[in-house]
């Protein structure tokens, strides 16, 4: 793992879905086993360029997610490496049994990509707003659950997957992400990069919440509170070394996720700490509610997925020391 944090943070000029597609195309030019499947959302996933360049390896299954996941498992059985996409709720909760049996239990080699995590589903509203996708998959043995924070981390993840075998779920923001890492940064599944060091409280975040965590750390610094920030970009496997080490060092923990805290990152970190290093803890995230329609900004405030909330919870966790 060799990553560098940017000095200043700004939105990437390139959408995450374009980085995803361009990276896959680059890999597919050298690897004729890579194929992609979609469930009538090629226009949304941004993979049209892949369909154009590799028509024989790109399959639009139509609106049939269960069949798509089973087809992906079958493709894997004859040595292909499928990437199957739908909106996150339909790529996970709708097809849980297909992922469980045909993919994971049968030890097939399948990548599942779910787009529009949590509040980023915005105008598609509650039916399309996954606060549960990672939680649905969390209890599948040996599955890897990934939420990249920016284009650099995303590209590393996609390229790294070429050398792996198993079931991988990528929780993918389609739009432009805040850039956190310098290009060329390298990561490791199950290892949480230390984005900011600190001593009084550790904030553990992924995806769009990582930048909120950094902003919260800046705010806390102004008040003389030293906050560390860890980027748990794989919720499973979770970093069972760095997280307890920072919990011990700081004595207070806050998780920040764009997901239900029940069955999500908060639950996973609480489990890790209970087993390794019981520590006062607070969870920023959706508090066991359903999604609803609105702009992303409205929804971030509606569900308290903000730096302000992280600051509040950090102080609450410190007060419990």
């Amino acid at each position: 793992m060799s990553y560098t944090i940017r000095n200043t943070f700004e939105k990437s000029a390139v959408e995450m879905r374009k980085v995803y597609t361009d990276t896959l195309i680059d890999m597919a030019r050298k690897n004729d086993k890579i194929c992609i499947l979609d469930a009538d959302l090629v226009g949304s996933s941004g993979t049209k360029a892949f369909f154009k360049e590799f028509p024989e390896r790109a399959i639009d299954c139509g609106i049939q997610e269960a069949n798509m996941i089973g087809v992906a498992a079958g493709l894997s059985a004859v040595g292909m490496v499928p990437y199957a996409h739908s909106f996150a709720p339909f790529a996970t909760r709708r097809v849980l049994d297909q992922i469980f049996i045909s993919c994971a239990y049968a030890k097939n080699n399948v990548r599942i990509v779910g787009t529009d995590p949590g509040v980023t589903a915005a105008y598609n509203g509650g039916t399309h707003m996954p606060f549960e996708d990672m939680g649905c998959l969390m209890s599948i043995p040996q599955i890897t659950l990934i939420e990249p924070a920016d284009t650099v981390q995303l590209e590393w993840v996609i390229r790294e997957l070429e050398n792996t075998h198993g079931v991988y779920y990528i929780r993918l923001l389609r739009k432009n992400a805040m850039e956190i890492y310098e290009p060329g940064s390298k990561f490791e599944f199950g290892k949480a990069p230390v984005v900011r060091d600190g001593n009084d409280v550790v904030i553990i975040a992924s995806g769009i919440m990582l930048h909120e965590a950094i902003k919260a750390a800046d705010e806390l610094q102004k008040e003389g509170i030293s906050a560390a920030v860890l980027n748990a970009f794989t919720w499973k496997p979770l970093d069972n070394e760095t997280i307890p080490a920072y919990a011990k060092k700081c004595g207070a923990v806050v998780t920040a996720e764009n997901h239900n805290v029940v069955g999500g990152l908060g639950s996973a970190v609480a489990h890790c700490l209970a087993m390794n290093c019981p520590t006062p803890m607070e969870m920023v995230g959706v508090q066991d509610e359903f999604g609803e329609v609105g702009t992303e900004d409205f929804l971030r405030n509606r569900f308290n997925l903000t730096a302000t909330e992280i600051v509040k919870k950090a102080k609450a966790a410190i007060a419990k020391k």
């Binding site: 069949n67 798509m68 996941i69 089973g70 087809v71 079958g74 499928p82 297909q98 049996i101 045909s102």
Partner: peptide, 12 residues
């Protein structure tokens, strides 16, 4: 589920 996995094998 075997319906879909068989389709995937045939397609592969």
């Amino acid at each position: 589920q075997g319906m879909s996995t068989a389709c995937g094998i045939a397609l592969g």
